[in-house]
């Protein structure tokens, strides 16, 4: 069923776009993850990385059509993961109470400029990227579904 959706010439854009998308979408996703993980070392961070991750799924949706994107990522899963991201961020902030204050950075800071450093900041970045990436995709999906349901009427 998935295969049929993938190669169905009637949903999504032309073969050229689909082929290019197949090549690039993984790279875009990886780049987003890179930006998230290096948020405490270089420009970017949770929000920017999350947006790039969301864009890779949006790219998929534009090229192959809504139905294919939903098989990869259902709206229900999106709303769960979004709440998980928010709760994760809140939990990281609450863990700070064990060090004396809300949002306190309690983990060891490590050596500057190494990947595992800066205490809870990379963890917060991951939580934010989950929230933003999934949330943005869910917004896009919701708008598209809204549009589609109107056409069917």
């Amino acid at each position: 069923m998935k295969k049929a959706l993938l190669d169905n010439p009637r949903c999504g854009m032309s073969v050229i776009v689909k082929t290019i998308t197949r090549l690039t979408v993984g790279l875009i996703l990886l780049y987003g993850i890179y930006i998230v993980l290096h948020g405490h070392l270089s420009p970017g961070g949770g929000f920017a990385g999350g947006v790039i991750i969301a864009l890779s799924f949006v790219h998929l949706m534009l090229a192959f059509g809504k139905d294919f994107a939903i098989t990869k990522f259902s709206p229900n899963l999106a709303s769960y993961l979004e709440s998980v991201g928010a709760l994760m961020f809140l939990a990281i902030a609450l863990v700070g109470f064990s060090g004396g204050a809300f949002f306190r950075n309690i983990l060891s800071k490590g050596t500057p400029f190494s990947l595992f450093s800066a205490g809870t900041i990379p963890l917060s970045n991951i939580a934010i990227s989950l929230k933003v990436g999934v949330g943005l995709f869910a917004i896009f999906l919701a708008l598209v579904i809204l549009e589609k349901s109107k056409e069917e009427e």
């Binding site: 929000f47 708008l143 549009e147």
Partner: peptide, 24 residues
């Protein structure tokens, strides 16, 4: 400004959704 952009994104998404519904 990054924070403000995030807020702007949220407001914009909500308003666009409302506009689509109004069109409906």
């Amino acid at each position: 400004v990054l924070t403000s952009i995030v807020i702007g994104l949220g407001v914009m998404a909500l308003i666009i959704a409302i506009a689509i519904r109004i069109y409906e």
